[in-house]
Write a protein that binds this DNA or RNA. Sequence first.
DNA 1: TTGTAGGCGTTATCAG
DNA 2: CTGATAACGCCTACAA
Lengths: 335, 335
Amino acid sequence: MATIYEVSKLAGVSLATVSRVMNQNAYVTDATKQKVLDAMKELNYRPNSAAQSLALNRSDSVGVLVAELDGPFYGPVMAGVESELRKAGKHVIIAAGHDDEETEKEGVEFLIGRGCDALILLAETLPNEYLIELSKRDTPFVMLNRSTKTLESQCITLDNQLGGYLATKLLIEQGHRDIAYISGPLWKHDAEDRFAGHKQAMEEAGIEVDPALLFESDYREAGGSSGFLQLLNSGRKFTALACANDEMASGAMISAVQKGIRIPDDLSIVGFDNVHYARLLTPSLTTVEFPINEMGKMAARWVLKNAYGKTKLSYNNYFSPKLIQRHSTKPPASK
Amino acid sequence: MATIYEVSKLAGVSLATVSRVMNQNAYVTDATKQKVLDAMKELNYRPNSAAQSLALNRSDSVGVLVAELDGPFYGPVMAGVESELRKAGKHVIIAAGHDDEETEKEGVEFLIGRGCDALILLAETLPNEYLIELSKRDTPFVMLNRSTKTLESQCITLDNQLGGYLATKLLIEQGHRDIAYISGPLWKHDAEDRFAGHKQAMEEAGIEVDPALLFESDYREAGGSSGFLQLLNSGRKFTALACANDEMASGAMISAVQKGIRIPDDLSIVGFDNVHYARLLTPSLTTVEFPINEMGKMAARWVLKNAYGKTKLSYNNYFSPKLIQRHSTKPPASK
DNA sequence: TTGTAGGCGTTATCAG
DNA sequence: CTGATAACGCCTACAA
């Protein structure tokens, strides 16, 4: 690979001049500029980014940590981040945290070690203390779907509680009173908030939250299936089921159908996230929209603004969920 | 950030020694080694990877180019690649090509410019000539789901034709004779191959391929919907439909249901890829498995072997598709 | 076993 | 406007 030195020799100028035309940050005669450009073309010159990073103390790459690289939720985040960052000439380095504290920490160190200029973290298991420590180091970072008190300005969040509230409220408005709930792992902040929203809606309607109609699951499809089955076996009747995410809702739906339960006639189901395939289920799933792609873009803009000094950029760091009504919910059959 | 120089000073040794204990590639007294280790800990030292890259001419990162970062197909590829590479201490840099030739080329240059040691390409639009040119440059690369004659050893492929064949053959074996086909964009190699498999099965059964029962679409759900509708409006009867991927199959399925067509009673549908949600559709979708996650891992191993000299590693570069029978297919209703 | 010194490819600060 | 030259942080012969 050609170096800047060879280019300068061929063009008959000094390296400094070559560097100048590359970075267009200083005046160079059109004539010499042309000579340099020609030389670069002829040698098929590409700057060595490691050398640039070293000299500039900046790598033009930002690290993204998500739990998984596949799955209907994380894909759109990365897509949003990448599209926005790429436009700005920045690179995306990705690490998966697999919902494991140790792995997530390793991921962060991995990314920092790689010289990322900033980090975008979608991490559930990292303890607040760790994040606070991290904020004292030199790599700026922004968090998605997580709110840490002392780091508010670095958080891009969705009002999960409102989402949970809207979902259950719809059910109530439709006339349901016996409403079961399958939550995500309650140590996760968003699961906790969504559940709080559910309770809020119930209380507001004067309905007591029956512990027998609650099941704490894992945000996964299989977990939704087994949760539903447990609820069913408990013997307590319910005409509606709210799930803390669409994956569990789809699992529950599959299990319900297998048990001969008709949806929404015998049972209404509402999910959360509005993943891509929610619309494809039969019946199509009523759910709460989580604008995760958009939030990914906002995270990217946060980075552009706060780590790359693009001060003109603006971004949102608070999003509101919206209810998406489809066909998995309807008023309960009158007895 | 502390540098190797500060560590050496604190430990009272030379930089060379520090470097040696870091890289564990030369003998160092246990005593001095300990001193160095202590100093590193105390300063919370992390090597600067840009400097390492510059000195070693190696970045320990590999570039991955896929069409999209979301979607049910690409996620599992990245997950496979990342998991395998991460184990080996390599980083993954991701770029999206968006199925556009110019964007894909930019992506490749972007990745090379970033100093990737190797590339994993899942690119449909890059012309063979470009790839051949690329193979003459210094960054080794492997391609997924694409076979370029002169670059066979760098291709990890699935037998798409066999897959297409299996899908249609199932339909035929079930007694269908009037079989419609919605293909992917035929300029894509895999779409072409899958379609070839379809024709092969038809011919083998002595059934003529009726052009009125073919529709070339775009591999997307909406394309499957509109394709199906066109087929329906053509007036030609068909009792089964093979789609070149699951996304189009799901689109077709949705449209069929909206038209009051029962699946599989009135119409059998088979897809391709076995994406995650194929199982969640109603009825669950019969399809052809594309072990894309596994193939991603293989690509990673190719890189480890061919770009990082891990010669002991072995990998497969040829995969066979398997039919996954579910509930969207059954013998046609007897008239 | 340990230290010295040169080099990796760029950028940036000075002079000129 | 252009050219030396000193960083940037690390690796690796070569010496000691």
